[in-house]
């Protein structure tokens, strides 16, 4: 990706974005490391609940994000992919070659 190549020339910020929330019942976060994310978009079709999209961040780089509409309901949206449901290799993590996606559960 061009914007990624840009990192070699322009000192860009990398950050860990925690999308989600903690409520009384626990912590529900999907974290994306912008340094590892290459904005390939493989996570988009991989997620059965379509929670991801790739967009330009505040610093002008392209990165995967969790859609705004899903950020407040990750506990429910991501429930089918919880390890307790028998899903061991989460589809989003499997699809993400650089390993940028981490879940809090």
């Amino acid at each position: 990706m061009l914007s990624r190549l840009g990192r070699f020339f322009v000192l860009s910020t990398s950050y860990i974005a925690n999308y989600g929330y903690a409520d009384g019942s626990g912590e529900y976060y999907v974290s994306i490391d912008s340094e590892k994310c290459n904005a390939c978009g493989e996570c988009i079709p991989a997620c059965p609940m379509h929670i991801f999209q790739v967009e330009e961040d505040d610093y002008g780089d392209m990165a995967a994000v969790v859609k705004e509409s899903h950020r407040k309901s990750l506990k429910y949206v991501c429930a089918p992919c919880k390890p307790t449901s028998g899903v061991r290799n989460l589809p989003c993590q499997k699809a993400c070659k650089p390993g940028a996606i981490v879940h809090s559960w």
């Binding site: 429930a79 919880k82 449901s85």
Partner: peptide, 12 residues
Amino acid sequence: SNRIAAMARRVG
């Protein structure tokens, strides 16, 4: 019910 249904789906 949306939240309850999501929870129920978790157990199948």
